[in-house]
Amino acid sequence: MTTSSTLIDTTTSTSGDNSQKVLAILFWAYVSIPLAWGIFQTLKKAMALFS
């Protein structure tokens, strides 16, 4: 079992390898797209305020 105490290198890259970069991009898209859709829907409704 690997525990934190057995690891020597405590300073590592913060962006990981390429597969992790792709995974991060996909995961960001997964959370951002519905959020952008929700903001767009809300803004559409808010337009009534200025019409």
Partner: peptide, 21 residues
Amino acid sequence: IIASPGYNRWLIPPAALSVHL
């Protein structure tokens, strides 16, 4: 869930967002 060396920390915010959203 202790991260392996080189784990991309930018995976953590969307993980948190997927719960909070």
